[in-house]
Deep mutational scan, measured.
Amino acid sequence: RKESAFKSMLKQAAPPIELDAVWEDIRERFVKEPAFEDITLESERKRIFKDFMHVLEHEC
């Protein structure tokens, strides 16, 4: 699924995404990734990013 691929892309980011990361600041790192391009709505990208950050916070 496209959403899973997007989350995997975020999870495998190098360097890892920090807990205090803001979408607008890290977005540039992913613009050339196929998983990024597959999610065409920016609002959807932000939503998935927020979900990812929520999970990340609870893993720590």
Rank of each mutant, 00 (worst) to 15 (best):
residue 37 E to H: 09
residue 40 T to Q: 11
residue 6 F to C: 00
residue 22 V to Q: 10
residue 59 E to S: 09
residue 24 E to Y: 04
residue 20 D to W: 13
residue 38 D to A: 15
residue 36 F to C: 05
residue 30 F to K: 00
residue 53 M to D: 02
residue 19 L to H: 08
residue 11 K to S: 14
residue 58 H to E: 14
residue 20 D to K: 10
residue 30 F to S: 00
residue 7 K to N: 12
residue 40 T to A: 15
residue 41 L to Y: 15
residue 30 F to G: 02
residue 45 R to P: 02
residue 46 K to A: 11
residue 41 L to R: 14
residue 47 R to D: 08
residue 16 P to I: 04
residue 40 T to E: 13
residue 1 R to G: 15
residue 18 E to P: 10
residue 45 R to D: 00
residue 5 A to W: 04
residue 9 M to N: 00
residue 42 E to A: 01
residue 27 R to C: 05
residue 31 V to R: 12
residue 60 C to G: 10
residue 5 A to R: 15
residue 25 D to F: 04
residue 35 A to S: 09
residue 36 F to Q: 00
residue 53 M to F: 02
residue 16 P to L: 05
residue 21 A to T: 14
residue 6 F to E: 01
residue 30 F to L: 06
residue 48 I to S: 02
residue 37 E to Q: 12
residue 13 A to D: 00
residue 51 D to F: 02
residue 57 E to Q: 11
residue 15 P to A: 03
residue 57 E to S: 11
residue 55 V to Y: 09
residue 12 Q to L: 11
residue 12 Q to Y: 07
residue 22 V to G: 09
residue 9 M to R: 01
residue 45 R to C: 00
residue 29 R to D: 03
residue 39 I to T: 02
residue 35 A to C: 06
residue 33 E to L: 11
residue 46 K to I: 15
residue 12 Q to N: 08
residue 48 I to R: 00
residue 5 A to T: 15
residue 47 R to L: 06
residue 19 L to F: 08
residue 8 S to G: 14
residue 16 P to R: 09
residue 55 V to F: 06
residue 48 I to D: 02
residue 3 E to L: 03
residue 46 K to M: 06
residue 56 L to R: 12
residue 6 F to H: 00
residue 28 E to G: 12
residue 16 P to N: 07
residue 48 I to A: 04
residue 22 V to M: 09
residue 12 Q to W: 04
residue 53 M to K: 12
residue 28 E to Q: 15
residue 54 H to T: 14
residue 50 K to Y: 10
residue 54 H to L: 13
residue 28 E to L: 11
residue 4 S to G: 14
residue 55 V to R: 10
residue 45 R to G: 01
residue 40 T to N: 06
residue 40 T to H: 14
residue 2 K to F: 09
residue 14 A to Y: 08
residue 55 V to H: 09
residue 21 A to N: 05
residue 28 E to A: 13
residue 44 E to S: 06
residue 33 E to K: 06
residue 25 D to K: 04
residue 20 D to L: 06
residue 16 P to M: 12
residue 56 L to P: 10
residue 18 E to F: 08
residue 16 P to Y: 03
residue 46 K to R: 13
residue 14 A to W: 07
residue 34 P to H: 06
residue 45 R to H: 02
residue 4 S to E: 15
residue 55 V to S: 14
residue 11 K to Q: 11
residue 13 A to M: 05
residue 57 E to V: 10
residue 35 A to H: 04
residue 43 S to P: 06
residue 32 K to E: 07
residue 13 A to C: 09
residue 37 E to C: 15
residue 29 R to E: 03
residue 8 S to T: 14
residue 3 E to R: 03
residue 53 M to E: 03
residue 56 L to E: 10
residue 11 K to E: 12
residue 57 E to W: 08
residue 39 I to S: 00
residue 25 D to Q: 08
residue 5 A to N: 15
residue 48 I to G: 02
residue 24 E to R: 04
residue 4 S to A: 15
residue 60 C to K: 03
residue 58 H to K: 11
residue 14 A to P: 00
residue 48 I to T: 02
residue 45 R to K: 04
residue 7 K to C: 09
residue 14 A to D: 08
residue 21 A to L: 04
residue 29 R to H: 03
residue 41 L to E: 14
residue 58 H to N: 11
residue 20 D to N: 07
residue 27 R to Q: 04
residue 53 M to P: 01
residue 18 E to C: 15
residue 25 D to V: 10
residue 1 R to V: 13
residue 17 I to V: 09
residue 41 L to F: 14
residue 3 E to W: 02
residue 50 K to F: 10
residue 53 M to R: 07
residue 10 L to I: 04
residue 45 R to N: 02
residue 5 A to D: 15
residue 8 S to W: 12
residue 38 D to Q: 08
residue 5 A to S: 15
residue 9 M to A: 02
residue 15 P to C: 04
residue 40 T to D: 15
residue 44 E to M: 05
residue 31 V to I: 07
residue 43 S to D: 08
residue 44 E to R: 05
residue 47 R to F: 05
residue 56 L to D: 08
residue 33 E to D: 15
residue 23 W to K: 01
residue 15 P to F: 03
residue 55 V to I: 14
residue 55 V to C: 09
residue 15 P to S: 04
residue 48 I to L: 13
residue 60 C to Q: 06
residue 59 E to F: 03
residue 51 D to E: 13
residue 58 H to V: 10
residue 15 P to G: 03
residue 24 E to G: 08
